[in-house]
Amino acid sequence: MIHVDDLTKRFGATRALAGLSFDVPEGEIFGFVGPNGAGKTTCMRILAALMSPTGGVAVVDGVDVIAHPDQVRRRIGYMPDFFGVYDQLTVAEYLAFYATCYRVPRARIQRTVSDLLELIGLPEKRDAAVDTLSRGMKQRLCLARALVHDPAVLLLDEPASGLDPRARVEMRELLRELQSMGKTIVVSSHILPELAEMCTLFGIIDGGRMVATGPLETLLGASAHRRARVAVGGDPNAAALRARQVSGVIDVSVAGQVLEIAYEGDDEESSPMLAALVQAGIAVQSFTPVQADLEQIFLRTTHGEATA
């Protein structure tokens, strides 16, 4: 549904995108994860035909974004990370205005507005002034605005930012419902636990490049090293010194009587590591493998980029 290949974008001397490539199949919720300034918003703006790339290819639903921006605009619903609303308009007028902009036939506009208000759970706010809505409501209204022309693809830039936990859950349920309606959704965020529950596919971006893509399980399995918390007896610093000599150990940090050990390998190899530590003369009192999660993968992969 979305195909991005070797996309680059320069702003003067800065490179916002440095050969970004990824694919999102139809019906997926793609979690676009990366630290601030990684290029998420730039990529979304290019896909939304708001900005032309310096180089590369971006295709939405079989249509080249650069060659046919007008056709792409009809296929995507875009929600920017920061947006405003028009005061002096009611919620229904606000949605109807954008529906007219998207050339929704006049006869269908009122139906569309009612359906969308039902979907985002704000039917009772129909005649309220837009600027009286809460932040969470505005966020949902903006999502409804992106849906007025029934697009196949949704590009949502940080839709959960600035929302309280309850509003976030509502947003998540809304996205699931949209997925069940057959829409392909791209969601960007730096709030990782949010995306872990929400998305079917992940892409981790850093420095304008995709550093890892795939479903959550693949990302967790593919991580190059594991972590374990090892409680030791005696002098922890001496134990750390010994642990560093053990082959396969990448990094050791000391926190009280507990060593945090990063080592190569997957779950099967945790017992050889335990054995090796004992063999090295470390008084192991407990050995707890730490389950890697998206957050760690994120920190690891993006940290690696930053220091490289």
Partner: peptide, 13 residues
């Protein structure tokens, strides 16, 4: 300034 220009420019208007 109100951050509504992009919302207008993504429409076919």
């Amino acid at each position: 300034e109100r951050q509504t220009l992009d919302l207008l420019l993504v429409t076919p208007v």
